[in-house]
């Protein structure tokens, strides 16, 4: 990705050149070496970044709260918030618990390797579908691909725009367009924390440039999770297999 390398280099180069003008030659040489090293580290391709993110998220179970604005099916924009819990490894399970909007509070989606469970609070129903068949659209994105960054790289043509400073540290800024045009968005931007490769923010836009979803990942933490915990549902729920 020559374009990505150029942009990343510029960013690092800009900072170094300011510093270098105030330093003696030896230090300038040392910083030159550091610059080369940083350039090499910073010259990540989107594929490498998504691989790093995937590897990092697969290290151990984690959870995070995702919040922001999203366009609902009726076209209105609403506050959304959901808790994302992921158990990587052999028995991969992810659980998305909705907090906002209030009408979806109590609903949750569980995604395992083979199945997608969709629990609906108001009807107290758990709808179980094979994962290959399920396309759990929510918040303008197929929830079954959440937490799967390898899949993201396959489904979206990504490019590295550069870096940004965030409250949590320096972050890569990636943009992309979905290869499958039937997705509910036509472009996306994602911020990935460099120090601990994981997503910090996600923005989805439609063909008209209107924001479909603008979400921030907060409260990321490593936790002890089991498949049984993530698959828990009300014992009196009606289970519907499709």
């Amino acid at each position: 990705m020559p374009n990505a390398q150029r942009k990343t280099s510029k960013y690092v180069d800009g900072r170094w050149s300011i510093v270098s003008s105030q330093r003696p030659k030896a230090i300038r040489a040392l910083l030159g070496v550091l610059f080369l090293a940083l350039s090499w580290v910073g010259a990540q391709s989107p594929a490498e970044i998504t691989k790093q993110v995937q590897a990092n998220l697969e290290k151990s179970p984690w959870e995070a709260t995702v919040s922001g604005k999203a366009q609902l099916p009726d076209g209105s924009s609403q506050d959304v918030e959901f808790r994302l819990q992921v158990l990587p490894g052999k028995e991969q399970v992810a659980r998305v618990e909705f907090k906002k909007p209030g009408s979806l509070e109590g609903n949750f989606v569980v995604i395992s390797e083979k199945e997608v469970w969709n629990y609906l609070f108001l009807t107290n129903q758990l709808i179980i579908q094979p994962r290959a068949k399920a396309n759990v659209q929510g918040l303008g994105v197929n929830l079954t691909s959440l937490g799967d960054f390898d899949q993201l790289n396959e489904q979206v043509s990504l490019k590295l725009l550069g870096e940004e400073r965030t409250a949590e540290g320096a972050a890569w800024k990636l943009s992309g367009t979905p290869k499958d045009k039937t997705q509910g968005y036509s472009s996306m931007e994602i911020l990935v924390l460099k120090a601990d490769p994981r997503p910090l923010a996600l923005t989805l836009k439609d063909a008209g440039g209107k924001t479909v979803a603008d979400l921030a990942f907060k409260g990321f933490k490593r936790v002890n999770l089991t498949a049984k915990q993530l698959k828990k549902y009300p014992a009196d729920a009606e289970v519907v297999r499709k």
Binding site: P73, N107, N118, Q125, L143
Partner: peptide, 10 residues
């Protein structure tokens, strides 16, 4: 038959 609305309902 059914109408699916993902996490929003069915």
């Amino acid at each position: 038959d059914d109408l699916e609305f993902g996490p929003a309902g069915r």
